[in-house]
């Protein structure tokens, strides 16, 4: 049983949570669209280049959508771009890709723009069409389109998901030698 679980986890995790097994480290995702943030109110310390958004905060960029209660962002002095973003309170992150929409919730999410990585903590839960996963920490590597789960990982998959052949073997069987007539 344990062996089966490990096999499932090792083989299916990238597919399960929408992270494709990237064959090689990809360059940073090209996010050409704007970052937009909406909130009820805001408090800006322009000398420190700190931006605090409160109340029904919604943020979006070409790769994902985020909502939370409180969002704090720090801006670089050189190019007016956010370097770090911390979302706190009822954090919801939605990522849409070819697998559908994946939804992550947690109490806190930290985005590091230099690494293009989002770390979700405080009881993170991930849900997508393949199942539900809980753990201590979720690391969403946007640059490589990968997802890492750390600590007390627990996955719940509906039975019908396990029947999908794509979970346990490649969708396309490897091409064998052509048989002659």
């Amino acid at each position: 049983m344990k062996r089966l679980f490990l096999l499932l986890l090792a083989g299916c995790l990238p597919t399960l949570f929408g992270a494709e097994p990237a064959p090689a480290p990809a360059p940073k995702a090209e996010a050409s669209g704007p970052v937009e943030i909406y909130s009820d109110e805001a408090d800006f310390e322009l000398q420190e280049r700190t931006f605090v958004y409160r109340g029904h905060v919604r943020a979006s960029d070409p790769q994902m959508k985020l909502s939370c209660d409180l969002l704090t962002a720090w801006m670089a002095a050189t190019n007016n771009q956010f370097t770090n973003i911390v979302a706190e309170g009822s954090v919801v992150i939605e990522v849409a890709d070819a697998q559908g929409v994946s939804r992550a919730t947690g109490g806190r999410a930290v985005y590091d723009a230099a690494a293009n990585v989002v770390v979700i903590t405080e009881n993170p839960v991930l849900v997508n069409k393949f199942g539900t996963m809980t753990c201590d920490r979720v690391i969403l590597d946007r640059a490589r389109n990968r997802l890492h789960a750390r600590g007390n990982v627990h996955i719940i998959m509906p039975p019908e998901t396990l029947k999908q052949p794509s979970l346990v073997r490649p969708e396309k069987p490897p091409a064998g030698p052509a048989k002659g007539p």
Partner: peptide
């Protein structure tokens, strides 16, 4: 004096990435 700005309602921020 200390560059402190408080916006009370309907805040919208738009941040466009610099040209590559």
């Amino acid at each position: 004096t200390n560059s402190h700005l408080i916006i009370s309602n309907r805040v919208h921020t738009r941040l466009q990435a610099p040209p590559s």
